[in-house]
Write a protein that binds this DNA or RNA. Structure first.
Lengths: 262, 262
DNA sequence: CAATTGGTAATTGTCGACAATTTTGGTGTT
DNA sequence: AACACCAAAATTGTCGACAATTACCAATTG
């Protein structure tokens, strides 16, 4: 049976990411938009997404259409469509007559991805600094405040989603539709996958301080500074993720050779 | 000058220079594979692509799945998949339970698109300047030479495809997989649509001179300069296309009101 | 023993039919 | 004439079955 399991309590990002922005103006979507039954493909898309991001479907593993369809109690049609959407989101790689695999996490791809992201979010900051509306800015500052108090209380639960939201809102504030689509529809899911599986728990402390400086720069309409700070911020994240990924893969390799010996 | 022998495909770094002779059906291929399309969806994808780019399917018009399927003598399954791929390429916009429309060309979207493209291709230039291989550089210079002689002979026929190839090769030389996928798999088709329908015939003369300077900068490993020149080059193209688009839409609006009167 | 070959099983691609939803067109009311 | 409402038609979403292609594995051969 198909159940609507909400992993995160208030997940605006998930739903808004799934079908991008039909809103005429670039206004951030309100929470709790319960357009529950749109299409089967969209529904299971979100579930497969989280399965991949969390590693329940391991990176590099093969995906069987029939098995997936049966798991969610639907037919292969919607499943195939979801897989194609996942391909657009870089979470899945498909080959004709061969099938789909979960994207493989490699160091070189990680660097490519972050390099691209850095440039794009730098651009987003520059645009946001000149175009952000008072409402958007207020919302951004609100989010920052919430995160800071949460951090002060030692509550790290919302950190991951919170960070996504932060970047998400700035991207929205950029007002460039194609930039938004490229980042949110294309790159962001893979990014979340890397970060989920290579997360570093004590990074948020510094990250939020960096967030604050970025917001301040945007509030002062200093796009150049905001862009610089953002690129630096992302570079920090890259380094962090890269280290964790390397050690992750070292572990996997060790386990591999161990298995070969026995 | 370093001359390179063959224009024909020797490795998988694309090669659609020479055979753009007669009005071709398959032009831009998917990124990594160059083998014949083994799936129906892939085959009609290319055909629908060119139909859209050429305006045979008018911008903004509704697309009927059944009609499309019948037109190509296949069923709706592969048709739907092709449409989804076209959505990824920004040539089509789909809404659940409503259907697909050909992307609408608007001035603001054009500017968004070119702004994004400018940043991305600037990045490609910077990377290419430091990573391009001697073979790739030779190939690029060859292409430039071919275009220059063609231009000298007053042969403007290859210009459009030639320009695409030029940018394509630089993007390839960047070596960043995600950048390549974003530009070629995501943005470039829509770009071609704009340019096809808003083309300006005497632009190529200057464009090729700009190409030359960009190649020289890359050859000298001056990424910063190459990036600057590329961004300027693209800005020129944007202005040009914007003007043509505005006048195109003015015509359309005039025709509209005329129809309303009668 | 490695590599190849052949056949079989598993998986993906395609189709036609049916169900769910939206769009259309007409009817009546204000 | 404008608006709301309802039934019919058209269109999209979903399903199960079949065809085409690839993956697997055993037997064979050098």
């Amino acid at each position: 049976m198909l159940k609507q399991e909400t992993i995160f309590p208030t997940d605006d990002t998930q739903s808004s990411v799934a079908h991008a922005a039909t809103s005429p103006t670039n206004k951030v979507k309100s929470l709790a938009s319960e357009k529950s039954s749109t299409t089967l493909a969209d529904q299971i898309l979100v579930q497969i997404q989280t399965s991949i991001i969390k590693g329940e479907l391991p990176a590099g593993s093969k995906i069987n259409e029939q098995a997936l369809a049966e798991k969610y109690g639907i037919s292969r049609g919607p499943t195939r469509e979801a897989l194609q959407t996942l391909e657009r989101q870089r979470l899945v790689v498909r080959a004709p007559h061969v099938g789909a695999r979960v994207a493989q996490l490699t160091v070189s791809e990680l660097n490519d991805l972050y390099q691209l992201r850095s440039v794009l979010e730098g651009m987003a900051c520059e645009l946001a600094a000149s175009r952000i509306t008072p409402e958007q800015l207020a919302k951004l500052q609100d989010l920052l405040a919430v995160q800071e108090t949460a951090l002060a209380n030692g509550d790290t639960y919302f950190q991951e989603e919170g960070d996504v939201d932060f970047h998400y809102q700035i991207i929205q504030a950029s007002g460039n539709k194609h930039l938004q689509e490229t980042l949110i529809g294309g790159l962001y899911h893979l990014l979340r996958m890397y970060r989920y599986q290579c997360t570093n728990k004590n990074r948020p402390v510094k990250a939020i301080a960096e967030h604050r400086r970025i917001v301040e720069a945007i509030a002062q309409r200093d796009g150049e500074l905001a862009s610089l700070l953002m690129r630096r911020h992302i570079e920090q994240g890259r380094k962090n993720t890269e280290l964790r990924l390397i050690e992750l893969q070292a572990n996997a390799a060790a386990k591999e050779t161990l298995a070969n010996i026995s």
